[in-house]
Write a protein that binds this DNA or RNA. Structure first.
Lengths: 204, 204
DNA sequence: GTCTATAGACCGATAGAC
DNA sequence: GTCTATCGGTCTATAGAC
């Protein structure tokens, strides 16, 4: 036995067969390890050791190291794309705020998977596909910013795509330091992000 | 011969000995390659191939792959720490703006090295030392934000350390997309960052 | 017996180092 | 070019819960 305890998680449901990691709990644990040292720098052997398993056990659940990555990235992207859908039928500025709030909440709820996503560099076909989906998400938000500018609710002296990049640069950076269960809860964090992004840090 | 041309750079100074890479130009080229695929994912063999060199030639200039990383991280940190010094003797809010502008300009001027720095995860002693210096820099800026709050020029409804993290999350994200020689020059970028960070995106 | 999760020995290829 | 260690991945067999 390794350092891992309660591999299948605490929200246990009745499961047949030998106890241990199922696909889901193995995924979660692997993503945590990947985030710790980086995907490339984590060998399957090292991953297995951290999980208290053999490599073969990992390959029972996933067909390759990269498939673990692909699954996690898919989860994160599904979550992010979901916030776009939930923001229809409202003025642009309000929709933008909704998307930002939603992005923060997805980011907190799926912190490990999103963290992994944001570190992807495009080193493989899997990574490039994930980057493509991220780009499409960014473009959807950029369109929202542009609408806000045309409609007069968003400042127009900054290019829409630059503004969007800066906005999401701020939002995404949250994965670098935010840890659930700390001093600030997710709602307070979302409020702070919205405050700084929309109204700025300066007091007038 | 590989794809690399003019190894020692275009701002050439008279140099004795066999032509080719000197320590500096090798460092620059290596950092570019590291940023392309990630430090861990770049093997010394792949680096040598990209530079049109043998592995032995690399080990002539640096004693290990990690020493290349260490040198580049040192350059980036020297630059960032420099902007703190240049901002003395002014009201806090103005000093904060000066530091932000300075950070953007260092980031653009030393884009490759700073990019590498921002991706460091603490996988080795060298990386952990770099993270320690980054943390010290962040704390100095946080102190500046706190002063601004006490003095009334910075909004106080957001915790100073959260505000600083969001601020530098935005600033640092610039390495992910900004490329010198594009549509926006460094001054315009700094102006945009200051505008969004200090006054927000919303128009009122 | 069936199902799930697991271990150990092993492979060809490639890593960093010199 | 050459060293050794380690990489991602495979094969075969088995342990444990229903």
């Amino acid at each position: 036995m390794g350092a891992a305890s309660d591999p299948a998680g605490s929200a246990e449901v009745a499961r047949r067969g030998r106890p241990g990691y199922d696909r889901r709990s193995l995924l979660d644990a692997a993503v945590a390890v990947f985030n710790d040292a980086g995907y490339d720098a984590t060998s399957v052997a090292a991953l297995a050791a951290r999980l208290g398993l053999s490599k073969a056990a990992i390959y029972h659940h996933f067909s390759s190291k990269e498939q673990i990555l692909e699954t996690a990235l898919g989860d994160a992207l599904d979550g992010l794309e979901g916030v776009l859908v939930s923001a229809r039928n409202a003025p642009p500025a309000e929709r933008l705020a909704t998307v930002l709030r939603g992005a923060v909440s997805v980011l907190v709820a799926q912190l490990p998977a999103v963290t992994l996503l944001l570190r992807v560099r495009g080193n493989s076909e899997v990574e490039r596909r994930a980057l493509d989906r991220r780009r499409a998400f960014d473009q959807a938000v950029t369109a929202l910013v542009r609408e806000g500018q045309e409609q007069g609710s968003v400042r127009a002296d900054v290019d829409a795509s630059v503004a969007t990049r800066l906005l999401f640069g701020m939002v995404n950076s949250v994965v670098e330091w935010y840890r659930p269960g700390g001093a600030e809860d997710a709602e307070a964090l979302a409020r702070d992000v919205l405050a700084v992004a929309l109204d700025g840090l300066r007091l007038r």
